[in-house]
């Protein structure tokens, strides 16, 4: 069997229409996950049990179950409770939880790795909790969060391909549809993989650069 370049050229526009949904899904998940993750991470660090215990529970749940199970649960499980979501929102919701759980751990780790003296200094200047977090702690924590967050974003972009399993339309699903029509698995999967690589490689590359910069900075 010859490698068929034609089938790639012909189907590339269709695959690229899948890329749009892959990127949309990834962006949605990154935005919601980051926001929710920061809230969860700060709650985990809270002295208040009413905040800390539920946050711990949610984070452990999202981190210690497979992301695909979370997707199955939302898409196939929730309808039994009368909650019916379409494929794309189901995937987005499941992945947002996964992203939030992992972000929460990154936030918690970054903040608790800061020297205790930074908290002491902020408090001794009369700052309240929010002033301390916004002006002193979070700016420093963000710097420590950057490399692991970028790593998480790369993982999230790749894992949007799991949405294909519940039938959400994105790059992988688009590829499967083309293969169903053309029976050209080799060419199409190769192109699909290459597209993921093109999206993710710059992120990985940039992550390494950020990690190196940290060694020289504070």
């Amino acid at each position: 069997m010859m490698f068929d370049f034609d089938v790639i050229a012909k189907n590339l526009p269709y695959l690229l229409s899948g890329v749009k949904f892959t990127l949309a899904l990834a962006c949605l998940v990154i935005v919601i996950g980051t926001f929710l993750g920061i809230v969860l991470g700060l709650s985990k660090l809270s002295k208040n049990r009413i905040l800390r215990y539920p946050a711990n529970f949610i984070v452990e749940l999202t981190r210690d179950t497979p992301i695909i199970m979370q997707m199955f649960f939302i898409f196939f499980g929730l309808p039994a409770l009368g909650i019916r979501l379409k494929t794309f929102p189901s995937a987005a919701l499941a992945m947002s939880f996964f992203a939030a759980g992992n972000t929460a751990e990154i936030v918690r780790g970054a903040i608790s790795s800061l020297p205790a003296g930074q908290f002491d200094a902020a408090k001794s200047l009369g700052m309240n909790y929010f002033q301390m977090m916004i002006y002193v702690i979070i700016p420093q924590a963000l710097r420590r969060m950057m490399p692991p967050m970028m790593g998480l974003f790369t993982t999230l972009i790749k894992d949007t391909s799991l949405a294909a399993i519940i039938g959400a339309f994105e790059l992988t699903r688009a590829g499967q549809e083309v293969i169903e029509r053309t029976f050209r698995s080799l060419e199409i999967y190769l192109v699909v993989a290459a597209i993921y690589f093109i999206i993710c490689y710059p992120l990985s590359y940039y992550t390494r650069k950020v990690e190196k910069a940290r060694v020289t900075g504070y």
């Binding site: 003296g117 200094a121 902020a122 001794s124 504070y218």
Partner: peptide, 19 residues
């Protein structure tokens, strides 16, 4: 917080804000 505004503190490790 109000009381702390009136009490300055200097630490062994300086604890300046590095950023």
């Amino acid at each position: 917080h109000k009381v702390r505004e009136e009490i300055g503190m200097v630490f062994q490790q300086f604890n300046l804000f590095p950023h």
